[in-house]
Simulated scan of single mutants.
Amino acid sequence: MTEPAPGYSKINWLYEMYYGFRPNQPKFLPKDYPDLTGKAAIVTGSNTGIGASVVQLLYEKNCDVISVVRTEEKGLAAREKTLKEIPNSKGSITVVGGCDFLDLNNVRPTAHKVTEILKGRPLNIIIHNAGLMSPVNTGTSVQGYEAMFSTNVMGPQLLQHFLDPIFLKKDDPLKRIVWVSSCAHLMGFKEYGINWENPTFEGVPIKQRPRNMTLYGQTKAANLLQSHAWALKHSEAVQKIGAVSVGCFPGNLSTDLTRDWSFINMFAPYFLGTALQGAYSELYAALSPDLTTKDHGAYVVPYGEVHNPREDITAAYKNGSDLKFYQMVEELISKYF
């Protein structure tokens, strides 16, 4: 199905894992962000954690932000908090609730709402921030897919499918997509991080599933493959409009992503970063002029640098395994188009 995957350096593996806990300080900060008046951004999973901080920073720069969340009430509460804290913005925050990637039937209605909100205006930034990192390997979506794969991989690609027609237009110079990944991609399966035979583990008894962090690592490797493959799939339009699609590891952070990890939360203040620092990583990926159309699939690390991902991921960008994976997911989600 794919080209044989090369091996990867254990030394590099250890270094990147260590770097996640001891990253360099951010250099691309809000003072460096451009004025975003008239620009529109979509941020998923944005009522709390990194997503909420990203919305605040974009709104502070006068961006019109569409906050896509599972629970509308929580999204509206986060919106009100931001409006009070940043009273002088010329931007807007619109909340779209009901987008739970554990049920892929939610995605089409979400995209329809987004299209109605934009009303033909340019869509500049898409940040696929929503994610699930489960402390167990037992989670299963409504459709019978492994929960983290449904949430972190299938949901974002399905949403992107619906957003492509309104994003892939030559209507504004700023065009960025950020697929939020993690250093956990290093823990994925041997072949480009993916269990190629059945990445969703549909129909596989729970007892036969790998451990939770291997499953999570698969989804984060997948996000990197998606970031590069999306650009290849739409290469003609991407070059025409100057769009940039990258992956981003925000950092090892204390956010709601770890809310079910009691052990991690006990020691979080001592070795984890903050949601705001993670937002600096994502907004480097979304706004930095350092990233151009030559950087599709770039692996942005905390808090705004570019490193190399695991060696087999880099190889996948060159031998087409990323496109094969993207097409595999496309076939899985096509029933929800």
Rank of each mutant, 00 (worst) to 15 (best):
P205C: 12
P205M: 13
I206A: 12
I206F: 14
I206R: 13
I206E: 15
K207W: 01
K207H: 00
K207A: 01
Q208H: 12
Q208R: 09
R209Q: 06
P210K: 12
R211F: 06
N212V: 03
T214E: 13
L215R: 11
Y216D: 14
K220P: 10
K220R: 13
A221H: 05
N223T: 05
N223E: 09
H228K: 07
A229K: 08
A229V: 08
A229W: 11
K233F: 13
H234W: 11
S235C: 01
S235T: 02
E236R: 07
A237D: 01
A237S: 02
A237G: 01
V238S: 05
Q239R: 04
I241L: 11
G242F: 04
G242Y: 04
A243W: 04
S245N: 08
V246I: 09
C248M: 13
P250F: 03
P250A: 15
N252W: 07
L253F: 00
S254D: 09
T255M: 01
T258A: 05
T258Q: 04
R259T: 01
W261P: 15
F263W: 12
N265H: 09
N265M: 11
M266C: 15
Y270R: 08
F271H: 06
F271Y: 07
G273L: 05
T274E: 05
A279H: 01
S281V: 01
S281E: 04
E282N: 03
E282T: 00
A285F: 05
L287C: 12
P289H: 11
